Simulated assay, not measured.
Amino acid sequence: MVRSELVTRLATQNPHLYERDCEAIVNAIFDRIEDALAAGNRVEIRGFGAFSTKNVRGREGRNPKTGESVVVAEKKAVHFKPGKEIRLRLNPELPDALPELRRAG
Rank of each mutant, 00 (worst) to 15 (best):
G47T: 10
E19R: 12
A73D: 03
G40Y: 08
V70E: 06
E74I: 00
S4T: 15
L94P: 05
E19N: 08
H16T: 07
E93T: 11
R9F: 02
E44M: 07
V43H: 06
V26R: 01
G105R: 14
N55I: 13
L37S: 06
R32P: 00
E5H: 04
E44Q: 12
R32G: 07
P99Y: 12
Y18K: 09
D35C: 11
P82S: 10
R59N: 12
A38N: 11
R102H: 09
L88E: 14
P15D: 10
F48H: 14
P82K: 01
E44S: 14
N27Y: 04
K84M: 07
P15F: 13
D96L: 02
V71T: 13
F80K: 00
E34V: 12
M1D: 05
E34W: 11
N55P: 01
A73Q: 08
G61A: 11
K75Q: 10
L88S: 03
E44Y: 02
L37E: 02
A38M: 15
V43G: 01
N14W: 07
S52K: 03
D31L: 10
G40D: 11
D21W: 01
P82G: 01
V78I: 13
F48P: 07
L94S: 09
R59L: 09
N63L: 05
D21A: 09
N55G: 06
D35R: 14
I33M: 08
R87H: 07
L88R: 00
I25L: 11
Y18Q: 13
V78D: 01
L101A: 08
Q13K: 14
G83C: 09
N14K: 11
E74L: 02
P64C: 04
V70Q: 05
L6R: 00
K81N: 05
R87S: 02
L101F: 14
N14V: 08
H16V: 08
P92K: 13
A39C: 09
E93A: 13
V26E: 00
F48G: 13
S52E: 12
V2H: 08
N63I: 03
F30Q: 09
R59Y: 09
R102K: 15
A39K: 15
L98S: 13
L10S: 03
I86C: 05
I45Y: 07
L6A: 08
A39R: 13
I45C: 05
L6V: 15
T12L: 11
L90A: 15
I33V: 15
A39T: 11
A97H: 06
N27G: 12
E93H: 06
T53H: 09
V56G: 05
K75H: 13
R3C: 01
H79F: 10
L98V: 13
E68Q: 12
G61T: 06
A11T: 05
K84N: 07
N55W: 04
E85T: 06
S4R: 10
G47P: 03
A73I: 03
D31R: 08
N27W: 06
L88K: 00
E74P: 06
A39D: 11
K75L: 04
K76L: 09
N41R: 10
P95N: 06
F30C: 11
A97Q: 01
T12G: 05
K81M: 04
